[in-house]
Design a protein around this nucleic acid. Structure first.
Lengths: 236, 236
DNA sequence: CAGTGGTCTAGACCACTAT
DNA sequence: TAGTGGTCTAGACCACTGG
């Protein structure tokens, strides 16, 4: 493991275990340098990583502080992997409705950057949070990248299988959000009524080399839809 | 201006002016080093910044590539500053409904981390996008930080005034999203009907030193609500 | 195996904060 | 003005990609 990643993990663990709250101060750069026996740049890199993740903020001339909001029960729009990572805190389960190999729709082909006669894995699932319907999701996986899927895999964490099982490196994702009214079919799956509000989410996931491998469309139950996003300074 | 910021700006401008598309390659690190006459770390820092912003992605052993999605008309949930920055592309206007100094609600006091008897500026606005109602927004500004506001300022960009006019450094924000049904009052302001879907957004903005200065609650017109978020590798 | 990006170091110097 | 974080350099060495 890389030094700066290791240090970042240690610091994150430290914050977690000591239940540090927003605004609490971490040791100074100098101290961390000597404690971890690395150069200043390496510590800086660790802290930049934690800052990107929204876990700390650094104030020149003052110190390094914990960043942590107070609200519980919100799902991060960023720490995502089809949301699995923080779903461990959330008891998420899935019911698979369809799984097969087929040709992509025009829309899927466009978003996956493939031809209409290439194969994709098509997955349709209902996902539950604490036993309540969270969303109805359709996914298209580029079969020339994701070469094999089965029922067991997609009931668990697909993204974990992609990294560990297939040895692929997941890079980045683009996510598009709309608010709209439920259709009759969607309402049925979610246990709501036609015309009720929905959050509609499309995501395109890419490997580190930029190739899109997953195009997903999800319709979220508005009653369970509490999301949050952390924004950093360079955006403001 | 810092070197790495300057270089990042130049590269961003270059990508913009040459209308480079997703996947197009930028010059190698070595080339950039010699062109800009800086050390490798400085170039790396520039590129890391652009990567954070979702403008490029780097592939070890291969090169530096432009990252850019294809969809138009989406508002970034991150490049926000109350959304002003990318609103320049969007012709946003505001109508001020209320502006006064008052005591905060419990909710506002909690989120701004102040006492109930401290003063806040209260601002209520309807915001329009291309002349259509985008959202109804209520904001609470900590008056001990934002010492003065008037109608002219809040019709323009509040955040610009805070940085330029007041010389304050805006640091980071936490944003919480819900989907729900419009109340009668909200529907009236947005020109929709009671019970229609809404996106409800709460944001807490902080200075670089971690002090919250603005708590805002916005109700978005679902017909104009198209948002996107870019996720980077360290989250996946 | 050549080219390209990533990690890490040691150290100089700068900019801001708190007291 | 002491303490603390931020920028920048020059260079060594590592890890991955692609022909």
């Amino acid at each position: 493991m890389l030094k700066y990643q290791h240090i970042a993990n240690e610091l994150e663990k430290y914050i977690e275990e000591h239940a540090l709250q927003q605004g609490e101060k971490l040791p100074s750069l100098d101290l961390l340098m000597t404690q971890f026996e690395v150069s200043k740049s390496t510590i800086t890199k660790s802290l930049d990583l934690l800052e990107k993740k929204g876990i700390v903020f650094q104030v020149r001339g003052s110190g390094i502080f914990v960043r942590r909001h107070k609200r519980k029960g919100y799902i991060s729009l960023l720490s995502n992997q089809g949301f699995k990572k923080n779903l461990e805190d959330f008891h998420i389960t899935s019911e698979v409705i369809e799984l097969d190999v087929r040709k992509p729709t025009k829309e899927a082909a466009l978003n996956l950057n493939i031809e209409l006669d290439n194969d994709v894995y098509y997955v349709k699932r209902v996902r539950y949070i604490h036993g309540l319907t969270l969303c109805l999701e359709e996914s298209y996986f580029n079969k020339s990248i994701i070469t094999y899927l089965n029922n067991e895999i997609i009931s668990e964490s697909i993204f974990n299988y992609i990294s560990e099982g297939l040895g692929l490196n997941i890079g980045f994702a683009d996510t598009f959000l709309h608010v709209n009214k439920l259709t009759e079919e969607e309402a049925k799956y979610l246990g709501l009524r036609k015309g009720d509000p929905k959050l509609y989410v499309e995501s395109i996931f890419h490997l580190t080399n930029g190739q899109p491998f997953d195009f997903s469309k999800g319709t979220y139950n508005y009653e369970q839809s509490q999301f949050f996003v952390q924004t950093n300074s360079h955006f403001l």
